[in-house]
Design a protein around this nucleic acid. Structure first.
Lengths: 184, 184
DNA sequence: TTCTAATTTAATTGT
DNA sequence: ACAATTAAATTAGT
């Protein structure tokens, strides 16, 4: 991850809480090799590229623009109406806010919330074929009204989950066998 | 919760029948027992494997009998109190205890109560590095007498908290700007 | 009630 | 495609 907080020298913390060496901590902020971080892969953000801003999400210094989609947040329902009235103030940014509403903050695809029926179908397919080809993925995408990308990522994560559970159960089995042998 | 087996009529329309078509897959499948049911990720449960296989949590057989020695064995000091509470719930009010019982035998990790000094160190590190690598996490774990997993989870939750607070303050800022603009 | 530790899983990155 | 992480959204304990 490329989070450069080199300009955090204004912390002014003279207190030393422990024996951690700050230099060792700071030394870890650099990537292993000095290569510049590759541009993140965010195809759905192409419309934002004309802004000429850094689209790399930064936790410590978030661009204010990524807060704009907040108006659609369910946590602040009262804001939506007010913002709708005042949309003119943001209209100077053309369709900027529209594009940015696509993601909660710039730079990351909004998390897809699969419906239960979608999950059911995906799980059923996964049971018989954990590696669906492009044709099955496209078919699923069409029938489930999802992007094919989402299907592929879902199967990737599902395979990882299965592998992890296998690893753990095998580990437990081995440990239990060991314990039983020790009891005997 | 079990899934309702509604026929996905909108999904079941057959167009073509390849060997891995969704229709054929869905036609084949009929829930065949939960042998491959996903297991929760509970690596700390490995520690109780020397008590026997009954310590492996099983959602289908929520026997409280194996849950109690489980937590006693790992030397959680609050275990006895929790067992007493649990027994009390079972004896007095079965219905109200349902959720607690569920979380009990399902084996959620007992909530870690960080000490003030631990929090202080973690916060100090967080100020200069919100993304500590594995080596810093291990160093922290050793010095604070915590599992590395706890460190990682703490930083995850801390980043989420920071982001949340940023979102809220920015929301307030934009809201105030809007109010000012409306007055004008 | 608020805060936060813990869990699950979608998304990202690098290999 | 996999492995390791991160983020987002919850659940639940204090």
């Amino acid at each position: 991850t490329s989070h450069n907080h080199q300009d955090n020298s204004n912390l002014g913390e003279s207190k030393k809480a422990s024996s951690f060496s700050i230099e060792s901590i700071l030394g870890l902020e650099r990537k292993k090799d000095g290569t510049t971080a590759a541009k993140p892969h965010r195809p759905w953000m192409d419309k934002c590229s004309d802004l000429g801003e850094d689209c790399n999400p930064c936790l410590r210094f978030p661009a204010i623009s990524y807060a704009i989609p907040l108006f659609n947040a369910i946590s602040y329902p009262e804001a939506e109406e007010r913002v709708r009235k005042c949309e003119n103030y943001f209209a100077v940014n053309e369709k900027l806010s529209y594009k940015r509403e696509l993601s909660w903050y710039r730079g990351r695809r909004p998390r897809t919330a699969f419906t239960r029926s979608q999950i059911e179908v995906l799980e059923n397919v996964f049971r018989v074929n954990s590696y669906p080809g492009i044709d099955v993925r496209e078919e699923l995408a069409q029938k489930l009204d999802l992007d094919e990308d989402r299907i592929q990522i879902w199967f990737q994560n599902r395979r990882a989950k299965l592998k992890r559970s296998h690893r753990e159960s095998q580990f437990l089995m081995v440990k239990n066998n060991l314990s039983q042998n020790m009891i005997k």
